[in-house]
Amino acid sequence: MTTPAQSHAPLTLTPEQERRIDEILGRYPTRRAACLPTLHVCQEAVGWVSPAVVAYVSQRLGMAASEVQGVVTFYTMYHQAPVGKHVLWVCRTLSCDLRGGKTMQEHLEKRLGCHAGETTADGQWTLKKAECLAACGYAPMVQIDDRFYENLTPEKLDALMDRIERGEMPAQEETAWTPNQAS
């Protein structure tokens, strides 16, 4: 993670990250089309879309900085401020709420001592409310970093977060599937 003070230094990516962006640029008929995926690569590297990221992307893709900024502000998955080590999204749309979405959020706020939209004092967790994450049948659910955890109870969620705090990366379970009788 970068602190705001560092964020004004120009962005330097690893050769591997530069190679990934070159590869992304090769996929599209225009440079600008690489904007969303390039921002994802940069956010992965820096932790958020810092001013240095915006400057880098605008220069790399030949866009005005204001255009890149306009893109960044349109989408919810670009962090416009530094976030905690882990970002936890709790789904609060209808299907999840019918099965305990709010209970999960309350449990998380109690455990973390912060509200949705905030980062814990120790910088470990940022808690965010999500809109429907296409897991409605496996509610309640959360997304932690790049994984979905579904069919949760407060206990199950606690166990997952304990493991993550110990440095583990619990795997995302394969989604259950029930075939019909004839097959």
Partner: peptide, 24 residues
Amino acid sequence: HPGAGAYICGEETSLLNALEGQRG
């Protein structure tokens, strides 16, 4: 091509704008 979190990008012309690197 990954999106970036916006329901409206499911609308087909918004999706095309997002694909082209614009606001969706």
